[in-house]
C-alpha cells in the first residue's frame, strides 16, 4: 500500500496545481535521500517568489490561533498562503502529536491556503530538517506567502532566523515569558514581538518590559528597530497592526538591496549546511576512514598520539582540493 505514483507523474500533477501531488511531494522531501533531491532539483527554478515569515515563541503562547487570524487577513489581501506548522517528535517513541491544524480548520476548504504539519523528527531544535525544502515546494506551488510556525525551545530560534525573512516572536504576559524570552535568545532574532492575549491585565506592562529591553540593543543607524505589537487572537484585536508591521518590515528589507542580500545569505547558508551534512555523511560512510580511525584510536588510548595527530592524518586521507 506504500507504492506511490512515480516522481515524474507527481511533478506533472504538481505543475497542474494538484494539491494531492504537492502533498505527496512534501512527504518525499520529508523522507529525504535521492528522491528528495530529485524533487528539489526539478522545482527549484520555480522558487524565489514567496515571502517567508517565521512565528516562534513558547508553547501555549497562542501561535496557531494568531496564525489563523493572520492568514484570514492575508487572504483578504489576496495572498496565497502556505503554512508549515512544526511540532516536536518524541525522542522516546519517535511519534509526534501534530495539533496545530485544529486552529486553522476555518481555512481547510480554501484552495488558496495549504497547511502542512511537520514533526521535527531527527532535528535537535524545534524545527524540521526539511523545512527549507517544504517552503521551496510551497513557493514553487504558487504560494506567495509562507508562514512557518515553530515551538520556541532549544535551538529552533536560530534556525528560524536562517529560514524566514521576517521573524515574529509570540509571547504571552503570564508566566514571565519576557524573561524566558531573553534567556532563550529570542530577543536576538525577533523582528517583531507580539504580546498576545492583550486582554490579559498584565499585557501592557509585559509589552513595555520587552520594549525597554529592546532599547538596550545597539542598532546601527538605518537598520530595523524591532517593534512590539499587542494582539489578542481571541478578541481579534491588534491583528491589523501586526500585518502593518510585517509589511513595514518587508518594505524595509526591499530598500537598498537588503532583501537581495538576505536572500543570498540564506541560500549560502543552505548550501553550506547541505555540504557539511553531505561531507559528514560521507566521512561516516567511508570504510577507509573508519579503519584508520579505529587503528589510530588505540594509539590515542595509550597516549602515544594526540587527537590532533589523528585528525591531521585523516585529513590527508580525505583531502579536498
Amino acid at each position: 500500500m506504500r507504492e506511490r505514483p512515480s516522481i515524474e507523474s507527481l511533478l506533472e500533477l504538481f505543475a497542474d496545481g494538484k494539491v494531492s501531488a504537492a502533498a505527496r511531494l512534501i512527504t518525499i522531501l520529508e523522507d529525504g535521500g535521492k528522491d528528495a533531491e530529485r524533487v528539489l532539483d526539478s522545482i527549484f527554478q520555480r522558487t524565489g517568489n514567496a515571502y517567508r515569515i517565521g512565528f516562534t515563541g513558547p508553547p501555549g503562547a497562542g501561535k496557531s490561533s494568531l496564525l489563523n487570524r493572520v492568514t484570514a487577513k492575508f487572504r483578504a489581501k489576496d495572498h496565497r498562503v502556505g503554512i508549515i506548522a512544526i511540532d516536536p517528535t518524541s525522542p522516546f517513541t519517535g511519534g509526534a502529536f501534530l495539533g496545530d491544524r485544529i486552529r486553522m480548520q476555518a481555512h481547510s476548504e480554501d484552495p488558496d491556503v495549504f497547511v502542512r504539519s511537520l514533526a521535527s523528527r531527527g532535528s535537535l531544535g524545534g524545527i524540521s530538517n526539511c523545512t527549507d525544502e517544504v517552503v521551496d515546494l510551497m513557493d514553487a506551488f504558487g504560494k506567495d506567502l509562507v508562514l512557518i510556525e515553530t515551538v520556541g525551545v532549544g535551538q529552533s530560534e536560530l534556525e528560524i532566523s536562517e529560514k524566514a525573512h521576517t521573524v515574529v516572536v509570540v509571547l504571552v504576559p503570564e508566566s514571565g515569558d519576557g524573561i524566558q524570552a531573553m534567556k532563550a535568545g529570542l530577543m536576538e532574532i525577533g523582528d517583531i514581538f507580539v504580546m498576545n492575549k492583550a486582554d490579559h491585565e498584565d499585557a501592557e506592562g509585559a509589552a513595555r518590559e520587552i520594549q525597554d529591553t529592546l532599547r538596550l540593543k545597539d542598532i546601527p543607524e538605518g537598520e530595523w528597530e524591532p517593534k512590539v505589537v499587542l494582539t489578542s487572537a481571541r478578541e481579534e484585536t491588534g491583528i491589523d497592526d501586526l500585518i502593518d508591521v510585517i509589511e513595514e518590515h518587508r518594505r524595509h528589507l526591499d530598500e537598498g538591496g537588503r532583501f537581495a542580500n538576505m536572500r543570498k545569505k540564506i541560500l549560502r547558508s543552505r548550501v553550506r549546511n547541505a555540504l557539511m551534512d553531505r561531507m559528514e555523511r560521507r566521512l561516516r560512510a567511508s570504510d577507509k576512514v573508519r579503519e584508520l580511525l579505529e587503528q589510530r584510536m588505540e594509539s590515542v588510548y595509550r597516549g602515544e598520539m594526540s587527537p590532533y595527530m589523528v585528525v591531521r592524518e585523516l585529513e590527508e586521507l580525505v583531502s579536498i582540493q
Binding site: 517513541t93 511519534g95 502529536f97 495539533g99 491544524r101 480548520q105 481547510s108
Partner: peptide
C-alpha cells in the same frame, strides 16, 4: 503516538469536507 506514529489531530466538529482536505494536504 506512543507507537511511534505521527498524528495529525484536527479535533471536534469536523465536516467531511474538512476531513478529506486535511487528509490530502497532510498526505
Amino acid at each position: 503516538k506512543d507507537a511511534g506514529m505521527e498524528i495529525i489531530y484536527t479535533g471536534l466538529h469536523q465536516t467531511p469536507e474538512m476531513i478529506a482536505e486535511s487528509a490530502v494536504q497532510e498526505d
